[in-house]
Design a binder for these strands. Sequence first.
DNA 1: TTGTAGGCGTTATCAC
DNA 2: GTGATAACGCCTACAA
Lengths: 341, 341
Amino acid sequence: MAKRRVTSYDVATAAGVSQTTVSFVLNEVAEARISDETRLRVLAAAEELGYVPDAAAQTLGSGRTQIVGVVVTTLADPFIGALVQAIESAAHDQGYVIILASSNNTPQREIAAARMLQSRRVDGVIVASSRVDAVYQGQLQQLSVPLVLINSLVQHSVPYTFSIGVDNRHGGRLATNHLIQKGHRRIAYMASPADRVDDIDRMDGYRDALREAGVGFDPSLIVRGTGCAVGGQQALSVLLSLADPPSGVFCYNDMTAIGVIAAARGAGLSLPRDLAIVGFDDIVFARLAHPPLTTIAQPLAELGQSAVEMVQRLLSEDPDVDMSISHTAIPGRLIVRSSSG
Amino acid sequence: MAKRRVTSYDVATAAGVSQTTVSFVLNEVAEARISDETRLRVLAAAEELGYVPDAAAQTLGSGRTQIVGVVVTTLADPFIGALVQAIESAAHDQGYVIILASSNNTPQREIAAARMLQSRRVDGVIVASSRVDAVYQGQLQQLSVPLVLINSLVQHSVPYTFSIGVDNRHGGRLATNHLIQKGHRRIAYMASPADRVDDIDRMDGYRDALREAGVGFDPSLIVRGTGCAVGGQQALSVLLSLADPPSGVFCYNDMTAIGVIAAARGAGLSLPRDLAIVGFDDIVFARLAHPPLTTIAQPLAELGQSAVEMVQRLLSEDPDVDMSISHTAIPGRLIVRSSSG
DNA sequence: TTGTAGGCGTTATCAC
DNA sequence: GTGATAACGCCTACAA
């Protein structure tokens, strides 16, 4: 067990060169024009000895960790799982490794996470799909490393903080438009628990679509869920008790929509005849719901990739990075399935 | 931006002590009996300066990283997401941080992951729910760090490799027994794609239950899915085309079962009257399926916690660790919902 | 109870 | 083209 690690010195000795040269070769330092012959000798020695560089030592020497911290509420949420998968994939392609921290939305864990990330000297932080209040954002910013928020609120534009997200307003319009084109006029919006920006944007898109179609906006058709299935179930009963209930409902997210589907069935409604339903996210189970759920698919791969790229761009001192562009919105795609008619 | 980091030296200076003392205080080294007065002074200085230790430097000095690598196939799988969440939570409680690597079951990514983990000098590796073939296992073992497999096959018992998993055979029995008690006699088992050990164990449990109930085993009632929904859909058609089709089916996992549910509905079956269905895992959507899916819940929290504890125990040179116990099985729980009658 | 000093394995800056 | 050599920030005998 106690076999000593192979160091770059061992490689140097084996190759008959200095440790410095080994470092140059392995890092492909352009300035040091190492001869092909030496290079090959070093590479062969490294290979033979099974040399693997020590990341901690590299960090201490270079100041870079090649780590990005990813903060989420909980991976138990299937959408977040898919998003993190996309981030991990993009990070890997760029030579980064991800450290995961789940906050469960508790201040205590958030503080621990911020401190941990600081201690680890991560090169950047990506916060995925969380509520990020002013306090927490401040904490994260004190890390003074690039901070990229995905689908989260940026309280105010500040240096080194960027946000990326699906175009919520556009998505809300797509969804609502679809219902309108299916002939619906009484269309409800089932919101998320608190006043999240993404929620507000989706509702704005909903209102845009109504307006463009000349459909009047009825505040009683806005109800609030909890962002998960039970919330949808409860909120549906509110809608059904209305004097003039809606024939279609656009839900903040798929989990909510799936709750609505379950509750609607429980209430004896026939779907989509009695109620057309559209969700948001396109989680795995949207397709498997009964009826399969029409929804707005989030561009996961693009979100992950852009987030990682953003971190890198912020990391480079490159002056042509336009620090004034603080938010990027990527359009989602309408996926029509049978829940909407 | 270029404000120099606060180091333990800065703290030492501010507190009027040596750097060593700072280290002793912050690490609560018992041997060095630091006076309360000094300790408080150091802590105050650290607090005031906002000192956060550099993990890389700590690693270089101590040889410990406090990192465990977690290797999964893909987080896009909701079950794996939930499992990783449990691992992260347990790891956090023990002062560990998680580095995530997804392999997508491609050899290329697996190799990259192994190398990355070695470079990062992780204190341990947890492989979650993956196929781990002999080659890959060998690679992971070369890291010569504690390796714990969750719900994965251990090819052969070797030092520093342990495996933890739900008790698949027991689960298979629970599930099948339940169907038997519901009055079913023609019970099918819908297996996973390849011959995974967990799959085999679940089927063994299925056969145990049949035998105990005096129900004959009919090989034609064993069909193979793909581990995901489409596989269940396809495999169901095989069962339905049988001369004497089953009245109940126990599926390798929930995703498969959900596929079966969808397909059964497509085929015009009334559930659970025409077909009783039981899954395995208890993923989020088991409860939301229509009808809600009876299943075997995996003890996620226990699995995660045990895995982390196992890593720690392997890490400690503690001689009373019984290295001969190479596998731990934790029983799952039968969750009865309406898909089974 | 506290301090001194060497070492951990790199990177990076100069010389040669 | 290649090699010394000084950081990097902490840990840990060993001294005092």
